[in-house]
Simulated assay, not measured.
Amino acid sequence: MNNPSTLKAQGSKPRQNREARQQHILDATLRCVRRSGFHGASMSHIAAEAKMSVGVIYRYFANKEAIIEAIVANDLAEMRAKFAEWENLPDDVLLDTLLDTLEMAVEHKYTGDNAALALEVLAEAARNPRVAAIVENADTQERELGRSLCRRLMPAGSEAQMAARGEIIGMIFDGMMIRAISNPAIDRKALLAELRHVMRVLFTMPAGPQD
């Protein structure tokens, strides 16, 4: 009789192989998009970069939009994991922990390749409704994750106020991608010090009156 654990391991191997191939294709796509832009990264170029045939690529992804969707999904999965860590923190250390992660966030946003890729996807979203839907859906999920933290840090704020502050925070971090291209030589140490101050204000200052 077959050992159940052995059968489970055998059953998971094809899935692991498939996931590994999908990730290999995603990595090849990232390199192509960074090098040639979204439109320049054709499926044939992606296949060549991945050292696979175009037909094999299509077994895993129906089109480039599906590849972009998978890339965005990977980013969301990483974000959910980080938010899950924060959700388990006591309230009295939550803010300081968030502020401590800003250095990593700034480093990520100001990395030229990361900024270029994100801007390529956003530019494509501005003219491609399918990519726009992917980006909008991801943004909705990110805002929901952020709102749960805002409720803990600013319990007296209204939903509208928390949504507005979350939008401002999104504007700051999304704007970093543009600044990473426009002003890559910024003094990041000074930037980080001021950013910590701004974020502390956004997370803790009592909400102002609403009209």
Rank of each mutant, 00 (worst) to 15 (best):
K64M: 05
A126M: 15
L76K: 03
A73F: 05
L149S: 08
A125T: 03
E120T: 13
I134D: 03
V56F: 09
A125G: 08
I71G: 03
E87D: 14
E136I: 10
P129C: 11
V93T: 06
N128A: 08
Y58H: 08
A77H: 04
E87F: 10
A70W: 05
A73R: 10
A73K: 13
R59S: 00
D113W: 05
W86E: 03
D113C: 00
D75L: 14
D96G: 01
D91W: 02
A84E: 06
V135M: 11
V72F: 05
D139I: 12
E103K: 11
A81I: 00
K64R: 08
L145K: 01
L145T: 09
N114C: 04
E87N: 12
E144C: 04
A133K: 10
E136W: 10
E85Q: 09
A125D: 08
E144G: 14
R143I: 07
I134F: 02
L145C: 09
G146E: 12
L95F: 01
A116E: 07
D91M: 03
K82R: 14
E65P: 05
K82P: 00
T97Y: 02
D113G: 09
V54Q: 12
E120Q: 15
V93E: 11
D139A: 15
A116S: 10
Y110Q: 00
Y60L: 04
A138I: 11
S148R: 15
E142A: 14
E124H: 04
A123E: 09
T97V: 04
A126I: 06
L149G: 03
L99W: 06
N88T: 05
E78T: 12
N88V: 01
A126D: 14
L98I: 14
A73T: 08
S148K: 15
I57M: 02
R151E: 14
A132K: 15
D92W: 06
A84T: 10
R127A: 11
D92P: 07
G112H: 02
V56E: 15
Y110F: 09
V93L: 07
E78V: 02
Y58C: 05
A123R: 14
E69N: 11
N114Y: 09
E69L: 02
I57K: 03
A73D: 12
V131E: 08
E124S: 14
R80S: 11
L119R: 15
V56W: 05
E103D: 12
L95H: 03
N74H: 11
F61G: 01
R127E: 12
L76Q: 06
E136G: 07
R151T: 14
E124M: 13
M104A: 12
H108D: 10
A73E: 13
A126H: 12
V93M: 10
P90G: 06
E136H: 13
H108S: 01
V93G: 01
T111H: 11
A115W: 10
T97C: 04
E136T: 15
M79L: 15
A84I: 00
T111Y: 08
I71Q: 09
E85D: 08
I67D: 00
T140L: 13
E136M: 13
L98R: 13
E136V: 12
I134S: 04
V106Q: 01
V54N: 11
A118S: 13
T111K: 08
V106G: 01
R143W: 07
E78A: 13
I71E: 08
R130E: 12
A133H: 07
D113I: 06
D92G: 00
A132C: 10
